[in-house]
């Protein structure tokens, strides 16, 4: 994904057990924080076709 021009922080993988609620909160907070900093994705976003 990174190679396609999607910023690395937009895609994150984490392993969180159902017993790790604090880790879950931490991960979600960090991910949302990172995404907010990046702002809306601009690449590979399809808009309505232009009139040819």
């Amino acid at each position: 994904m990174e190679h396609m021009g999607i910023e690395p922080d937009r895609l994150q993988f984490s392993w969180v057990s159902s017993a790790e609620s604090t880790k879950f909160v931490k991960v979600v907070t960090e991910v949302t924080q990172a995404i907010k900093e990046l702002g809306p994705n601009q690449n590979l976003v399809k808009t309505m076709p232009e009139v040819a």
């Binding site: 910023e7 690395p8 590979l44």
Partner: peptide, 14 residues
């Protein structure tokens, strides 16, 4: 060479 580009530069390149 492509790996060294920033995400935006990669997108533009492709």
């Amino acid at each position: 060479e492509i790996e060294a580009l920033s995400p935006q530069e990669k997108a533009t390149y492709f």
